[in-house]
Write a protein that binds this DNA or RNA. Structure first.
Lengths: 136, 136
DNA sequence: ATCCTACAATGGACAGAGTCCAAGTCAAGA
DNA sequence: TCTTGACTTGGACTCTGTCCATTGTAGGAT
């Protein structure tokens, strides 16, 4: 993730302790934290960080394409740092656990022209649902 | 949709004017109303219907499998009466318009066993994104 | 090393979506 | 028609997220 900090600096980001901590919290695979969870973890290192700053920073990371926004349940959005490798999500209907998955094939290829209604289709998000080993 | 009313009566639903109006509002193809939109339309016919009743009724219709809940944008959930025919959604990134679409193939087939992490996978939701003819 | 200033952080008010609950109402079976 | 348990109501409440005026500070200029 320190290469992320480098990239951001290279893009003219002013590097503040708040932004650094948010970026560090969003490190790793299969990380899908809500904004409040990011705030809670960031606050362990930087107690006075505000919710507004966390929301601002997350929004900027999304706009820069460094983090993906995922909403699997119509509740709080989740933030996925694994934005550079295209992937989909597998969600446990029992406990809400989320795994990144890489299906074979391109979902776009499954949408024939007569099902596109004149739209210019640019992407597809797939959410697989099921029960994780612990919940099954 | 009157066959829906029959089915519900058959399942022991107490038939109230509020429930009837909500069911009638949710009639047609490519209908994807938010709860507030359902409430507004229902209130045109039954001015004193409350928001709580609309939420209750929508929740019951979803639990009975008569209506599908769709959340394409992390904002308000939308309610799709076309629940008996499996389909996916195509969403315009410009204006938010939603079309029901039927891709070929089964998205589940594209998730190989080693990408399932021991989950019992039961379904997949696909959201295609693009620009509709008016927004393109 | 210090100063400047534009950009960033803060926190509190606000808004949108949805849930909960106690009290009142009514559908439908007896 | 009566009765009763299911349904509806509206307002308070929660959760998630946004907005904004004020305060603070990173980092280039001197």
């Amino acid at each position: 993730m320190s290469d992320l900090l480098e990239r951001l600096r290279g893009r003219g980001w002013r590097m503040t302790s708040q932004r650094r901590v948010v970026a560090e919290v969003l490190d790793g695979d299969h990380v899908h934290l809500t904004a409040d969870e990011v705030h809670a973890r960031a606050a362990r290192r930087l107690p006075e960080i505000s919710r507004a700053t966390v929301y601002n920073t997350l929004g900027e990371l999304v706009a820069l394409g460094e983090v993906a926004e995922v909403s699997t349940d119509g509740r709080a959005k989740r933030y996925d740092p694994n934005a550079h490798r295209p992937h989909q999500h597998l969600v446990c209907s029992g406990c809400g656990a989320i795994r990144d998955v890489r299906p074979t094939g391109d979902p776009l290829a499954d949408l024939p022209a007569q099902e596109r209604f004149g739209f210019t289709v640019s992407g597809a998000e797939v959410t697989y649902r099921g029960l994780c080993p612990s919940c099954a």
